[in-house]
């Protein structure tokens, strides 16, 4: 099981963070990602293999004062 922004998803072996983000429809240059509460630099997305139980937060900018 993976948790992405609080939603549980099925875990698949050997999936990279980059693949997950693409499958979920996120645009990489507009987001920042935390994996288990640690920031993952963009350059690491393709090298990061997700593990069962990982929690992923995907954030972006929105309007705010």
């Amino acid at each position: 099981m993976l948790t992405v922004n609080g939603t549980e998803l099925n875990f698949s072996e050997q999936q990279t963070l980059s693949q997950l983000l693409e499958a979920q429809g996120y645009e990489e240059n507009r987001i920042v990602v935390e994996l288990n509460a640690a920031i993952i630099p963009k350059a690491e997305y393709r090298r990061t293999i997700l593990q069962d139980g990982d929690a992923v937060e995907v954030l972006n900018f929105v309007g705010g004062g």
């Binding site: 922004n5 929105v62 309007g63």
Partner: peptide, 16 residues
């Protein structure tokens, strides 16, 4: 100013 929030899926409109 901008705020940071959970991104919605599917490449919705981005403030940037």
């Amino acid at each position: 100013t901008l705020a940071l929030r959970r991104a919605s899926q599917g490449g919705k409109d981005n403030i940037l």
